[in-house]
C-alpha cells in the first residue's frame, strides 16, 4: 500500500485535491460548531441585511441579514450529503447490473447494456432535469434523478471487467473447482474493478456537486431556507451588482470543492492506470 501512497504524494495537483477534499469534508462534519452564526440557517436579522464583507461578517450578509460565511459552511454538509448519496446509489444500481451483464452473456446482458446506451444517449443534466420535473421538485427527487442518470458509468466499468474475466482460464478453473457463481463474482471479479470504480466515484462526486448546484439554482433541488450553494446563488441575482459578495462566495465554494474532487480523481486515475495518462 505505501509505495502507492508515496507515488501519489509526489503528484502535487493530486495532493492539493486531497487537501481540498479533506478540508471540505471536515467543514461538512464540524460545520455547526465552527460556523460563527450557526443559527443563520433559519434565523433572519433584517437590521443587518446586505452588508458587505467586514471583520464580523467575512463573507457579508444576505437579504435576510444572515451571515453568508456560516451559510456557506453549513451548505457544505448538504452538498456532500447529496454527492455521496447519489454516487452511492448509482453504484448500488450500476455495479450489480454490470456484474450480471458481464458475467454471463445472453439476452439479459444485451438488454442491460442497451438500456445503458439509451441512458447515456442524453446529457446527464437534461435527463436529470426531465426526471426531476416529473417528480415533485425537492432535494430527494433531485438526488434520485441524478442517481438514475449516473449509474451507467459504473455499469460500463464493471461490465468490461466482468466480461474480460469471465472468459479467462482462471475463472474456468474456479468453476471447475465447483465454486459458485456468486462467490466468483464477488470475491474474484469485483475486486479487479475496484480501482476504476474508485476513480469514477471520485470524479462522480465532483460532477454531482456541480449538477446538484445547477438543479438547486433552477429551483429543482433544495428549497429555501436551506443553505444550498446553488440556491443561494439563484437568490442573490436580484441584489446584484450591489451585493456582489452574495453571489461570489458560494460560487467559490463550489469551485474549490469540485476542483478538489477532480484533482484527486485525476491523481487516482494516473495511479491506477498510467496508460490512461492522457491529461498530465
Amino acid at each position: 500500500m505505501s509505495p502507492i501512497l508515496r507515488k501519489l504524494s509526489r503528484d502535487l495537483p493530486a495532493m492539493l485535491g486531497l487537501a481540498l477534499v479533506v478540508i471540505v469534508v471536515l467543514i461538512a462534519i464540524v460545520g455547526p460548531w465552527i460556523a460563527p452564526y450557526p443559527g443563520d440557517v433559519t434565523a433572519s436579522h433584517l437590521a443587518r441585511r446586505l452588508k458587505p464583507p467586514t471583520g464580523s461578517f467575512p463573507f457579508g450578509t444576505d437579504n435576510l441579514g444572515r451571515d453568508i460565511l456560516s451559510r456557506v459552511i453549513l451548505g457544505a454538509r448538504g452538498a456532500l450529503t447529496v454527492a455521496f448519496s447519489v454516487v452511492a446509489l448509482s453504484m448500488a444500481i450500476g455495479i450489480p447490473l454490470g456484474l450480471v451483464a458481464g458475467y454471463r452473456a445472453g439476452f439479459v446482458s444485451e438488454l442491460i447494456m442497451r438500456v445503458t446506451d439509451v441512458v447515456l444517449a442524453i446529457p446527464q443534466l437534461i435527463l436529470a432535469l426531465a426526471l426531476a420535473q416529473l417528480m415533485s421538485p425537492s432535494l430527494e427527487s433531485a438526488m434520485l434523478a441524478l442517481s438514475l442518470t449516473y449509474w451507467p458509468f459504473f455499469t460500463r466499468i464493471v461490465f468490461a471487467e466482468a466480461r474480460r474475466l469471465s472468459n479467462s482460464v482462471f475463472v474456468d478453473a474456479l468453476r471447475g473447482l465447483g465454486m459458485g457463481s456468486a462467490r466468483i463474482v464477488f470475491l474474484h471479479i469485483l475486486p479487479n474493478a475496484a480501482s476504476p470504480i474508485i476513480v469514477r466515484a471520485t470524479i462522480g462526486l465532483g460532477f454531482t456537486i456541480l449538477t446538484a448546484a445547477v438543479l438547486g439554482f433552477l429551483g429543482m433541488g433544495a428549497t429555501p431556507p436551506a443553505p444550498d450553494w446553488g440556491l443561494t446563488i439563484a437568490q442573490s441575482r436580484i441584489y446584484l451588482p450591489g451585493a456582489w459578495w452574495y453571489a461570489l462566495f458560494p460560487g467559490l465554494a463550489i469551485l474549490l470543492t469540485v476542483m478538489g474532487f477532480n484533482l484527486l480523481g485525476d491523481g487516482l486515475r494516473d495511479l491506477v492506470d498510467p496508460r490512461l495518462r492522457r491529461s498530465r
Partner: peptide
Amino acid sequence: LRMLSVFGVAVAAFWVAIMLQLLFAMQ
C-alpha cells in the same frame, strides 16, 4: 494553462455567467 483547465472544468457555468455579468455588464 493547466490551472486554467482545472478551473474551467470545475467551475459552475451559471456562476461564471453571473460573475461575468457583474463585471462586464454591471460594473
